[in-house]
Design a protein around this nucleic acid. Structure first.
Length: 229
DNA sequence: CTACCGATCCCCT
DNA sequence: GGGGATCGGTAGA
């Protein structure tokens, strides 16, 4: 395999450490789907950390279940879950095995494969929403005119634009030959300025919801402003 | 701009 | 049976 950014070992050491550091450190890294014939690349610009079974906002808060098993696996692997009946979200497992820590990828900024991302968004909508099956032309028109920065903004949209499916769950994202993978931020790119705030959509978690464990790249227009816009 | 609402289904306490 | 780490449409200020 030829080089594509820093070797995985750099990312592995980041992901094997404290998950809040990993969530911050993943900003600027690339999410890659496909191969040279058809590749989608997105720069990660928004993340959230979920830290262990004591984190009441985490899917691991009730311990290990059939859904969240990947969270208890090795760092650098994917934890994929479905929610609200139609969305699929991607996490990067962090920390030591049995720690049940993960980083939710909330938004990426398209670097390559914009047309492929639009097509993936369109086909996912047709597969999951009756309204889009009933009016496919209208859905296609909406997606065709969507600004590039909105294609993978928000965790459900990342899942759709990168065709994240349950089969991806547990997959090693650091395998350079894998179909879905992470690449460390290119060393030529400067570390981005980062802001942080409370995690989104976890008000049920009480005080845990107030922890500033959401991180985003200040300069990016692809960040989902709290609720996806 | 903000606020609310329906969609849609797998997993679970 | 209940509810969710969401999204897009619509209504109203």
């Amino acid at each position: 395999m030829e080089a594509g950014g820093d070797p995985p070992a750099d990312l592995l050491s980041l992901l094997a450490g404290p998950v809040v550091d990993a969530a911050r450190g993943l900003l600027g890294a690339w999410l890659v789907r496909g191969d040279a014939a058809s590749v989608r690349i997105g720069r990660i610009v928004e993340t959230e950390a979920y830290d262990g079974s004591e984190d009441l906002a985490s899917h691991a808060r009730f311990g290990r279940t059939t859904r969240n098993g990947s969270m208890f696996g090795p760092p650098g692997h994917a934890y994929v879950y479905g929610v609200y009946g139609m969305h699929t979200c991607l996490n990067v497992v962090c920390g030591p095995p049995d720690r049940a820590a993960a980083v939710l990828v909330r938004a990426v900024e398209p670097v390559a494969g914009v047309a492929e991302m639009r097509e993936a968004r369109r086909s996912r909508g047709l597969a999951t929403r009756r309204a889009e099956r009933d009016a496919p032309d209208r859905a296609a028109a909406r997606i065709a005119t969507l600004p590039v920065a909105r294609l993978a903004s928000g965790p459900g949209n990342v899942g759709a634009a990168f065709s994240i499916v349950p089969v991806d769950d547990g997959h090693d994202l650091l395998d350079p030959a894998g179909p879905l993978r992470l690449v460390a931020r290119p060393s030529a790119e400067p570390a981005p300025a980062v802001a942080s705030g409370p995690r989104v959509g976890v008000t049920f978690a009480g005080a845990w919801a107030e922890r500033p464990w959401r991180f985003w790249v200040v300069a990016s227009t692809a960040v989902s402003s709290g609720r996806g816009r």
